[in-house]
């Protein structure tokens, strides 16, 4: 049972984490990011579409498909996030509203395009893509550790990619030139502007990175949860990752802990139901646990939050 909690917990936590990291890029750069929900869904759609279309040529069993899906999802998420970047950075739209615009657009466009593509390929107007199950693997050695060994059993290739992306993000945000400039944009964009940096460019890149990472998270969700892509991808996990980011105070390590907490609380709830032999409907009640706990914990920790100071402000050189 412990193994199952760990395995399932990790596979739920990882997509949340990568989306939350995307959010950290964007919001640390000063652009409010409510669009993660739409970006992950659209990314998942592009990834799934790419997998289905290339499946026609490579065969549906090809192990390459999952990597094609990943790459396409990241490209799709990034491309779609350019709408948010354009609206917020260039068109001076209110960032909260722009985020919701992107969500609405994604939720409308992806099922529409899915049925258009399905009609072209198969002739019937389904709004689902069958993408087949992902390969899974177990890390020898590590998986034998008691209690936490489950974390290393039947892992998705995505999980490795996401952990790598998280580590790289720590390096990018805190060690590189771009990271220094990005965080300056979120605290006081005028400082970067005065130092000769390009605030709008830095922010645009941050939003695009967020789109790519969210897309990756979305396609992972499509693979891990149902092995299909359907409009059910929009169940609000993007929003949940925003909550994790805020809870994690816009820093990667605490955010990772929050995501693991969400994942483990959720899988523990499921396993507890199975263990107690409760009917399936009772698991719904336990599923509220992570959300109720989040609210409760936020009551204690929210006061100490310090969001990026310049978040939500359109950069305007003449205002100072």
């Amino acid at each position: 049972m412990m193994d199952a909690i760990m395995t399932d917990g990790l596979s739920f936590a990882m997509p949340l984490l990568i989306m939350a990291i995307g959010g950290i890029y964007s919001e640390r750069a000063g652009v409010v990011m409510l669009a993660i929900e739409g970006l992950q869904g659209f990314g998942a759609f592009v990834g799934a579409a790419a997998a289905v279309i290339s499946g026609i040529y490579l065969g549906t069993e090809s192990p390459l498909l999952i990597f094609i899906a990943m790459a396409a999802a990241m490209a799709g998420g990034a491309a779609f996030s350019s709408i948010h970047a354009l609206l917020c950075v260039k068109f001076r739209a209110q960032q909260v509203i722009s985020g919701m615009v992107v969500n609405t657009l994604a939720m409308a466009l992806s099922p529409f395009l899915t049925s258009v593509i399905n009609r072209a390929i198969t002739g019937n107007e389904s709004n689902k893509f069958q993408i087949g199950p992902s390969v899974r693997f177990t890390v020898p050695g590590l998986s034998e550790i008691p209690l936490v060994g489950g974390l290393f059993k039947s892992m998705y290739p995505f999980e490795i990619v996401i952990i790598a992306a998280a580590l790289i993000s720590c390096y990018v945000l805190y060690k590189t030139r771009y990271g220094l400039r990005l965080r300056a944009c979120g605290e006081n964009p005028h400082s970067l502007d005065a130092a000769g940096g390009d605030v709008n460019r830095t922010r645009t890149i941050a939003v695009l990175i967020c789109g790519a990472l969210s897309g990756l998270g979305g396609v992972f969700l499509a693979y891990s949860i149902s092995a299909t892509y359907s409009p059910n991808i929009y169940v609000g996990y993007g929003y949940l990752s925003i909550a994790a980011m805020i809870f994690g105070n816009w820093k990667i390590p605490p955010t990772a802990c929050v995501c693991m907490f969400f994942g483990l609380a959720r899988s523990a709830g499921y396993q507890l139901c199975l263990y107690l032999g409760m009917p399936g409907s009772y698991s719904d009640l336990l599923l509220t646990l992570p959300y109720a706990l989040t609210l409760l914990l936020l009551v204690f920790f929210s006061k100490r939050n310090n969001p990026p100071r310049a978040m939500g402000e359109t950069f305007d050189r003449s205002r100072r």
Partner: peptide, 29 residues
């Protein structure tokens, strides 16, 4: 035009950061 939660040095180099390579590959400020 200063970033309040950056140090004096970080504020001064912002925009023209000196770069070193860790392990000869990764560029770091």
């Amino acid at each position: 035009n200063l970033v309040p939660n950056y140090t004096v040095a970080e504020n001064i180099i912002l925009g023209s950061e000196p770069i070193k390579r860790v392990f000869g590959i990764f560029p770091c400020v």
